[in-house]
Design a protein around this nucleic acid. Sequence first.
DNA 1: TTCGCCAATATGAACGATCAAGTCACCTCT
DNA 2: AGAGGTGACTTGATCGTTCATATTGGCGAA
Lengths: 357, 357
Amino acid sequence: MVAKRAGVSRQTVSNAANAPHLLRPETLQKVLGTIDELGYRPSHAARALRTRSTRVIGCRLLPSNYGGTGGVLDRLLHALCDAARSKGYDVLTFSVGTDDEEIGVFEDLLRRGAVDGFVLTNTHHGDVRPNWLLAEGARFVAFGRPWGRDQAAHSWVDVDGASGTRQAVEHLSALGHARVAYLGLPEGNGVGDDRYRGWHDAMAALGAPTKGLVARAEDGIASGRAMADQLLALPIQPTAFVCQSDTMALGAIRAIEDRGLRPGEDISVVGFDDSPVASLWRPRLSSVRQPIEAVAQKLVEVLLAELSGLQRKPSRDLLEPWLVARESSRRAPGRADRVSIPDVPVRVATAKTRFSN
Amino acid sequence: MVAKRAGVSRQTVSNAANAPHLLRPETLQKVLGTIDELGYRPSHAARALRTRSTRVIGCRLLPSNYGGTGGVLDRLLHALCDAARSKGYDVLTFSVGTDDEEIGVFEDLLRRGAVDGFVLTNTHHGDVRPNWLLAEGARFVAFGRPWGRDQAAHSWVDVDGASGTRQAVEHLSALGHARVAYLGLPEGNGVGDDRYRGWHDAMAALGAPTKGLVARAEDGIASGRAMADQLLALPIQPTAFVCQSDTMALGAIRAIEDRGLRPGEDISVVGFDDSPVASLWRPRLSSVRQPIEAVAQKLVEVLLAELSGLQRKPSRDLLEPWLVARESSRRAPGRADRVSIPDVPVRVATAKTRFSN
DNA sequence: TTCGCCAATATGAACGATCAAGTCACCTCT
DNA sequence: AGAGGTGACTTGATCGTTCATATTGGCGAA
């Protein structure tokens, strides 16, 4: 340890970095001086060996366009790296095909002591990963609620999807739309059910009909197109679509065009996740945007709390998404005079709602 | 070290893992048996401390839609993680805004001994990072040639962009297109000039005119649209566009539509990078796809060779991209009878060309 | 028999940090 | 004056490996 050239002991140098209050101000100055004079940084390996903590967080890398999430997880990874580094942590990534393989990597990384904890993404019904991690006593936070299980079993951070679709309905309603249809995933998917619920409750709250205005099927442009086409074939067409993904929304736009109608002008469409295509498509797609940067910060914050051991109970955080309004959602044609609901301003700031703790 | 319960010494266990040939087959069996009976994995930290090698590779995370690369770097990161893990390495990511910040992170990670080497992405003219790394004696490989400097200064792996645009021209020519225009970045960008050269040389080789068929400006849909519009205003319109990015290609499609023409049918368009939108757009966009998985494998291979110290000279590898033909590029209208060039089959396999070493 | 050599395994030291306990001077209280 | 406490450091041990070097036993050749 070269920094001992400051004329003090190893431990004093160590303290200068980790517990400055133990040093006399003048010694502290002297030590800190020689530290950055020599460009010294404590060895990651040695510190990890001694303290049994690596200051590294593991995170699975999911395919970019995974499940129609449209780059949400990419943004998350970026934000996660930033948030982690600002707290002195690094992020180690790995790419696996299945949850079981992911558990294999968890085991490897934990046994070798290569990471302190994990950020879990893409939680879903029947997810085996939380069970495994809990059984191993590993530290982790999930991005996504523990769908279909005890919400208090472990810490998680999630975005309120129901609020997102609710905002979309309110936005459309304010634009004079009464028949707002919903395109989503089939029942049984946590995220899908959540978003569906938001649409349904918002419609009910407005006293608007919901019956016959729902189509649910797998994600994808083709799927969205087929679902929208089916609803557009109804005697009384919907005047707007709220979709659970941007891909479905793009499909809806196609279906609208197929019938010679103008998306945005004749029939409005709102997507979800604000993927890169949303602002590239014509008409530019209105979409619900998740506060990913805030999610990442929260994830790191919660994980560090878990790692510190001070955290007793698992924490739960639900963050608010917001609507980005573009040309695909506009005033309902011929309805300008029949608006009965006062305009609801579209929220543009990142509002947070905090649960528990 | 619990595995000593096999009744042998630490070192023997160590050898079982690192130098099995030193052990008598029966001892090896016994040791390996207890190793996985106890689920033992060598401590990352201790090994790193002793051997001064962490088996971790650092890699900067670039924004998903960085510079119109349309997800290429995301694919690279995935492939990199896979390739690294298959060799017993892990990937540590960080997200920074500028090259200088990146150097800051390099310094931090190297000084702390948190990584063995780096993969450099997005190399460009006047890039200061290679200089810094070389001066520090750090190990690294670049994805991208050292534009505008000595190509032998350090190891790199790149994709032959000129070959990509050449393939695009040959493809269009085979479809009967004679006036194939080019939309690209302004002169001075390495990648841009490379792709331009491919178009230019291929056109020249076919004896086709190039003059007045070029527009070069910044990347983006709007930019591509404006450039294409300008060329479409010529007395004799081009019948096809080869673009240096998918975003520019989408712009070209817009410009074609603006004039009431049908992209793909009246005028063909080929993009570059095969970004996710390419197959989502209507018409689906033909695009040149980079062999990113092969690039990642090569990067890891080369970096490990550098790390092993056996590598004497920097290595240079140029890989071949291939064209993915879709509906945006079709037979030139009214030219079916005037095809003078024999059909060139579109390559669909990942061919590699190897330079040096 | 004796020596040397090799193969197989064991032992001590080191990597660079932190923890826990120790030293030492100085100060306060009785 | 002595006991006790406290602030500001220092010292020895330790984390779990691998390196370098030792030890051991067996075997072949002189």
